[in-house]
Design a binder for these strands. Structure first.
Length: 523
DNA sequence: GTCACCCCATACATCTGGCT
DNA sequence: AGCCAGATGTATGGGGTGAC
């Protein structure tokens, strides 16, 4: 069976529909408000209205059927007790239907998006392929040279082959290829055998496949795996919870285009970089009271839920609640790509800034119930640990792992699947990392409190000089490579996977790593 | 007790605009 | 012309809520 199925999703697109019926509607140049106004006008026309309703009505039953049909039971899977939710992708339906239609031993070759091996929503299909079929090849292209015209150049797609029956122990794979001709030599002369058992250990939640390009990649991943995954809740040490704050569209009623009294800035991903803040002027501001009341409402809801689920009868006291934006917090950009100079870009934000959903945030304060009492503002992680964590996440070593998973978004589940040592102040390797990262972060007065909390005098202990900062960053990266027990060869390999990073930076980082081989405990 | 509807958290065959 | 960094709209599962 050989097929190149459609890659569309079963979902209405209002702008696409109304574009057909209006000279004014364009797909991406209109704001939501302009579009809604135009949509209302168009719907006054009864003919347009009927067509629109007919269009909308074609989705509900298709959707319901695909979700309920027994032959499509692998479209969704359970991750951490929750069913994965995602769009109905035609490519996903085709994969499952191909598996259904094959006779035992029958073979299938199919051209589909890379989501099959990366997306959370395709976990069920991966399990189907790994457990009830033998995957015989996963050859992955990046569309950089426009193999498919009209498809975005950064889009990735795969040629997947499998045979029905049995199960997969390992399969040959190649990633980020650009030439169709290379398919001819795969898997005989190129590609790597990926063991399913390793995939499961590396991504226990999602069973997503990392883009290993050589044996040393597998060796490094194996080595890093000895540390617990960030999403694993471990008693007696720090843990991380992720969240989003405001949605660019759904919460746009809160956004003002001018600063003013009582207003706080909306801080977007482009406004920070690794260990730095304040790149460029904000575009929106929010009235603190309005924004606060929205956030408190959500928080009260969560607290009530906790109370309902417990045997406690308590009044929720919103005035007790501290909100995340009032604290220093970890933040990282959602939109990124593995082909960018760097993929994971995060920092610690100072208080009194709000963020849109394209900035993923640490959930600092939450409420919980202990000993029949509601405890407000519980925290999972202190300032030193928070700085340690961002230092590790921003390192070349972790970024290298991110780049083997990320396509265009740094989703929560990628972060939760990172192996990260949960070091604390009692570990000798902890403070040298925290101290350096704090010097990089605490460079303006807003960070004075954070500086004081982690052992600096004030932001004046921070480092502003570009050369000194580069040196600190190199040392951090070197220390973190040692933290994972990486060898010289392994770390050099990791650094070589960043083609857009300045060579001087790479050289300084490697030098810093080598320096610590001989000075293990130097502070 | 059941159903219809709403809210929340999350994901994404894209598209635009700035920069070099 | 190519790279990079978002902006945006909408569906999903899942849980809550209120009407009947």
């Amino acid at each position: 069976m050989i097929t190149n199925p459609p890659w569309e999703i079963v979902k209405p697109n209002a702008k696409e529909f109304f574009q057909e019926h209006s000279a004014v509607v364009t797909k991406n140049k209109m704001t939501i408000k302009e579009f809604e106004k135009e949509q209302d006008k168009l719907l006054v026309d009864e003919a347009v209205r009927d067509l629109w309703l007919a269009y909308l009505s074609t989705f509900a039953h298709q959707s319901a059927w695909f979700r309920a049909a027994p032959q499509f039971k692998f479209q969704s899977a359970v991750v951490n007790g929750k069913k994965t939710g995602s769009d109905i992708n035609l490519y996903k339906l085709f994969v499952e239907q191909c598996a259904n239609l094959l006779r035992d031993g029958g073979e299938c070759g199919i051209v589909i998006p890379s989501g099959i091996y990366t997306d959370l929503g395709a976990k069920g299909l991966r399990d189907l392929l790994f457990n009830q079929n033998q995957v015989t090849g996963l050859f992955c292209f990046e569309n950089r040279e426009e193999i498919f015209e009209g498809v975005h150049r950064s889009f990735k797609f795969v040629v997947l082959t499998f045979a029905k029956g049995g199960s997969t122990i390992q399969f040959p794979a190649a990633f980020m290829r650009h030439k169709v001709a290379e398919l001819a030599t795969f898997p005989a002369q190129m590609g790597l055998q990926l063991p399913i058992e390793l995939i499961r250990r590396l991504s226990p939640d999602s069973h997503s496949v990392m883009e290993f390009k050589s044996a040393i990649d597998m060796q490094i991943a194996e080595k890093m795996l000895k540390f617990p995954l960030l999403g694993e809740t471990i008693e007696g040490t720090w843990n991380l919870r992720l969240t989003n704050e405001f949605h660019m569209t759904n919460d746009s009623h809160l956004f003002k285009t001018e600063p003013g009294a009582g207003r706080l800035p909306l801080y977007e991903g482009k406004h920070f970089h690794q260990f730095t803040a304040d790149h460029g002027q904000p575009k929106y501001w929010l009235n603190e009271n309005e924004a606060r009341s929205d956030l408190i409402t959500a928080r009260i809801k969560q607290a009530k839920k906790l109370i309902t689920a417990s045997t406690v009868s308590a009044e929720v006291k919103p005035e007790m609640m501290q909100l995340d934006y009032e604290s220093y917090r970890l933040a990282f950009r959602d939109v990124s790509a593995s082909t960018n100079e760097r993929t994971f870009i995060g920092t610690i934000l100072s208080p009194n800034r709000f963020c849109p959903h394209t900035v993923s945030l640490e959930n600092v304060f939450f409420d919980s119930i202990k000993n029949d009492k509601i405890i407000y503002n519980c925290t999972n992680i202190n300032h030193r640990e928070r700085i340690f964590l961002i230092a590790v996440l921003n390192s070349f070593v972790l970024d290298y792992l991110f780049r083997q998973r990320v396509t265009s978004h740094v989703s929560f589940f990628f972060v939760y699947n990172m192996p990260i040592p949960r070091l604390t102040a009692t570990d000798p390797a902890f403070l040298p990392i925290v101290h350096r990262a704090a010097q990089l972060i605490c460079i303006t007065p807003e960070f004075d409190e954070l500086a004081a909390a982690v052992g600096l005098e004030s932001h004046r202990d921070g480092v502003n000089d570009a050369n000194e900062r580069a040196q600190l960053r190199a040392e951090l990266d070197g220390l973190i490579a040692h933290l994972y027990g990486l060898t010289d060869d392994e770390f050099a390999h990791i650094l070589a996977t960043f083609p857009l990073v300045d060579e001087a930076v790479i050289a300084a980082t490697l030098a810093a790593y080598r320096n610590y081989v001989h000075n293990e405990n130097r502070l």
